[in-house]
Computed example of a mutant assay.
Amino acid sequence: MNVNEVPAIVTGGASGLGRATALRLAELGARVAILDRQVATDLPDGVAAFTADVTSETEIGEAIAAAEAKHGVARILVNCAGIAPAMKTVGRDAKPHSLDTFRKAVEINLIGTFNLIAQFAARLSTAEPVGEERGVIVNTASVAAYDGQIGQAAYAASKAGVAGLTLPVARDLAALKIRVMTIAPGLFLTPMMQGFPQEVQDALGAQVPHPARLGKPEEYAGMVEAIIANPMLNGEVIRLDGAIRMAPR
């Protein structure tokens, strides 16, 4: 799909992987709408921002409608919104993992992703196809879906859910000519990572076999661009990780 003049939605687009993706799509000529709980600032022309909670059917429905009123029916959806809590199943003093924390990770990372997918696809389903497809959905999982570390039970489970829904949803939406893909990033230089001291960032990057550094958000955005451009990419999870396999800790 050629993205020029095509409406697109990016969740979590106020920062990190989502912001890099929104900016890349805008550079390619797409009309981008960012959906985020944070207020997105310093945006170029052609990029609009709407505040919404991905776990709310009502807020997401209203935000998609507002984006559609501004740019038209979106044909590209990139789901980047997410959180990464860290907590052991049994912590100090035999304290069990907070069920609220586990539930929140699943609600935002997994249920929030599916909420966007379902509402986006429903609105797109009645639009005319562009060539051989109506649109493309790109979700964000994590290498933690496969290599979850100590303290990542909630995060890894939620991201494994995102990986797991990729194929069945792609099959669900095939008749509507909507593709579904997922990217599983490794260690990337996101705002959370930037909060660590430089020596910690360098040590983490050195764990990556090649290239031995942290991934750049722009490289994630480049993968999104490649997925959108290639119509045979459908129903698959792509690890974008420099061949890293995470150690237990």
Rank of each mutant, 00 (worst) to 15 (best):
M193Q: 05
G242C: 03
A141Y: 06
E236V: 15
R134F: 02
K88G: 13
A229C: 02
I183F: 00
T89C: 12
V138A: 11
F196G: 04
T101V: 15
N234T: 12
A221C: 05
A40T: 02
A105C: 08
L240V: 11
T182M: 07
G61M: 10
D93Q: 15
A105S: 09
R245G: 08
V138Q: 01
V130P: 03
F102E: 06
A212I: 09
V224E: 00
I108W: 10
I9Q: 11
G82W: 06
A67T: 09
V143D: 11
L35P: 05
T58W: 10
T166E: 07
I34G: 11
V224P: 02
A154Y: 03
L233M: 15
I227R: 04
A66C: 05
V3H: 04
K159R: 06
M192H: 08
L28E: 12
P7H: 05
A163P: 03
A154T: 00
T55E: 11
L165V: 03
G112A: 14
E225V: 02
L189P: 13
G112H: 03
L99Q: 11
T190P: 15
R103V: 09
T58P: 03
A8C: 08
T51Q: 15
V54C: 03
S158F: 05
Q194G: 10
S158C: 10
G82R: 14
M246W: 13
H71T: 12
I178H: 12
T126K: 12
N79K: 00
E5V: 07
P248D: 12
V143K: 11
Y146H: 15
P248I: 14
A121T: 08
I76Y: 14
L116S: 08
A247V: 13
R75K: 06
M1D: 12
G135E: 00
L187W: 14
N139Q: 05
L233Q: 00
I244S: 09
M232W: 10
A63D: 04
P209R: 04
R239D: 12
E128N: 07
P85R: 08
I9T: 11
G215N: 08
R213F: 04
P85V: 03
A33S: 14
R75D: 07
E59W: 12
E59A: 10
R31Y: 05
K159D: 11
D100G: 01
I238V: 14
I183C: 04
A184P: 14
V10F: 03
L23Q: 01
R245W: 13
L173V: 12
G164N: 01
A63N: 09
G131V: 01
V180A: 04
P211C: 00
V224C: 01
N2F: 09
I228Q: 10
G61K: 14
L176C: 02
A40L: 11
A206V: 07
E59G: 01
T113R: 09
G215E: 14
K104N: 00
L17N: 00
V200W: 13
A20E: 04
A52L: 03
K159E: 14
D172W: 00
L167Y: 14
T140A: 05
E128F: 02
A65V: 01
N2V: 04
